[in-house]
């Protein structure tokens, strides 16, 4: 029974990672280095990653940079609107520890206290290579899962 679940899971994940639609939510500098990822030099569409216009079509929510007490409410609302299965990628040191705003009175210090974060990408702001490394880690994870299923 467990094996069957794993098989279905591997097939599902294999389909999901081939076309990842991203919704961006950012209100600070954390996302500045994400723009070259979309543009022609890094071109994330090579891997089927595109930016969509609303959270209801998205598979991955990218939260860029620090969130304030006010904007985190919107992040939670956006996260709840996304259809399952969904993932959150948090960009920048600010989402991990608060970064340079560690002693600010109105920024949140750790994003995973509010929404489940799938993967953190550190950096201030993170370079495009770091984003691709994160995506590559997800691909690697799914490939591992497929190999395990095939091995049995």
């Amino acid at each position: 029974m467990v094996d069957m679940d794993k098989k279905v899971m591997a097939r599902k994940m294999g389909r999901l990672i081939r076309s990842i639609w991203i919704f961006n939510w950012f209100n600070s500098c954390g996302v500045t280095e994400l723009l070259p990822v979309v543009a022609s030099i890094y071109d994330m569409e090579r891997f089927g990653l595109i930016v969509v216009d609303n959270p209801k079509h998205a598979d991955v929510l990218i939260v860029g940079g620090y969130q304030t007490e006010k904007s985190i409410k919107r992040v939670i609302r956006i996260y709840n609107q996304m259809p399952e299965p969904k993932a959150v990628m948090a960009l920048g040191s600010c989402t991990i520890t608060g970064g340079m705003y560690w002693d600010s009175y109105n920024t949140i210090k750790r994003l995973s206290d509010y929404i489940p974060v799938t993967i953190y990408v550190p950096g201030c702001p993170p370079r495009p290579e770091a984003v691709f490394q994160a995506v590559g880690m997800i691909f690697e994870h799914v490939n591992q899962l497929k190999k395990e299923v095939k091995g049995k």
Binding site: K12, R15, L16, R18, S19, S40, D43, E45, R46, F47, G48, D59, P85
Partner: peptide
Amino acid sequence: RVGPPLRQPFYDVLKLFE
């Protein structure tokens, strides 16, 4: 840009049905 593989729309549809 390099662009997605030609099969990309098929992948998109398979994903949307999941």
